[in-house]
Design a protein around this nucleic acid. Structure first.
Lengths: 183, 183
DNA sequence: AACTAAACGCAACTCAAATTGCGTTAGTAT
DNA sequence: ATACTAACGCAATTTGAGTTGCGTTTAGTT
């Protein structure tokens, strides 16, 4: 007997459907905004029957959240340059670059609407990553993880949601600079 | 002839409908989140016919935005204590207090979903208010309006949306403290 | 007190989203 | 190679949001 049999069948057609739906969702969210996207619309763009989407995800909210999870891989390597300031700069640049992609920004805005009750994946992951970097430098660190969230992550996310056109190449650097000012 | 006749008839039934709809919207947005609120739902809660809501506002987006406008009056007085730090502290406390009301927080989250294209009222008003306070102290001000947005407004809004349970009485004060640290 | 018109309520209707039953396809196991 | 079954496609149906026509109510006017 082989290892325990899984419920899902990964390869083949199922995977193809998943992939084409994923692409369709990303395109449509970027084009129209999460608000104006419907499941039949996604199905048509993906060349898939709406029924398949309903069966697999149930509703639009679940589907989009699920698909958004595939982005900004939580297992990606965290910058490790030897200096906390340089680590945070590289890390912040990654986040800014990620959210300058209009699709990712639209998905974030959509996620904001349904946040508040439980801690979102996005927030939890950023907090954990910040904690890892700060703790490398022990009690000598000039900044705390909470300060990183308040003064590095929060300004970036705020701009992504409300002022996306103010996000430029220098945003990450100047925020880090200000974070370390007077320390 | 009397003074120019207005189109709308203020008192009486119309006002009663407006008021009960307003309450219903605030309750429902708080309970279910802006996403899951529909006009028939609001009408039923308000004890009003859905047709009336459709006729008056047209669609859900317009209705909720209109009702949200009644909150955090943009003509309210801005703190003026004689010290920029004290002004910003009082101002930040107001914002925190406002968004610790779950209804206001839910409306903000809902607004985030449809932001990004054009500058929202919320952002524009905060930016203008910050500018007014900073400019009172001229070129000698230790902080710029942009810094106020990045390190005072952004952390508050970020917490309201994603980490509302971390908003406590000390949040505003400690953020201002950090903003002025080393200046 | 009678008149006017804006706003409301009611009921019928439209249309797209969502659901369901059933036959078919295709990946996996023996 | 054959059997098994999860996932898909198709078509019919149901559900509910949004619209429209029309009669009724009521605040404001004369």
């Amino acid at each position: 007997m082989s290892t325990n049999t899984v419920q899902k069948r990964p390869g083949g057609r199922s995977a193809a459907v998943l992939n084409s739906v994923k692409i369709a969702v990303e395109e449509l969210v970027q084009e129209k905004g999460r608000e104006r996207v419907t499941i039949p619309m996604v199905a048509e763009r993906a060349g898939v029957n709406p029924t398949s989407v309903y069966r697999r995800w149930g509703d639009l909210q679940t589907m989009i959240n699920d698909i958004a999870t595939y982005r900004l891989d939580p297992t990606r390597p965290i910058p490790e340059t030897g200096s906390l300031k340089a680590d945070l700069t590289a890390w912040a640049r990654e986040i800014v670059a990620h959210y300058r992609n209009p699709t990712n920004a639209a998905l974030l805005r959509g996620g904001a609407a349904s946040a508040g009750e439980t801690e979102s994946d996005c927030t939890r992951n950023r907090r954990a990553e910040a904690g890892m970097m700060v703790e490398r430098y022990g009690a000598t660190s000039p900044v705390t993880p909470d300060e990183v969230l308040d003064h590095l992550v929060a300004p970036i996310i705020y701009r992504v949601i409300f002022l996306p056109w103010t996000l430029d190449d220098g945003t990450a650097d100047s925020l880090v600079e200000r974070l370390f000012a007077g320390r």
